[in-house]
Amino acid sequence: MQVAKHWRMKAQRYYMGQDGVAPATTTQQNAEDFQFNGRGEIYSYSTVYDAPAGYEGQAPYTVALVKLQEGPLVTAQLTDIDEDELRIGLPVEMTTRKLLTEGEEGMIVYGYKFRPSF
């Protein structure tokens, strides 16, 4: 059960903001809020066939390094994409999806993924 961790990270999962790296805790007191526009392009990617615990139901899926328009690289899962569409440089945009479900009775964790831009 990782309820506390998921709750602390919700700002990043939903907005991709607030520095995107450190959890929203007291360590961020001097940080300024910043929200990315959610657009970028695929910098690199890899498709996962042997998924870690909690993600088996989604395999195969592709994880990418996405270069955001503002500059930073973020790691995220891609969604709504077919294998033949995958290429470095593909324009993508942020979308909020289910990241994982903790079994039949646990919590559902939502967060950002990227899909081909509309």
């Binding site: 989604q58 979308t95 999806r97 289910k98 990241l99 939502y110």
Partner: peptide
Amino acid sequence: NGLDEDVTTMSIE
């Protein structure tokens, strides 16, 4: 809906 979509994610968009 895809594997990672439900009423919550669709409502958000």
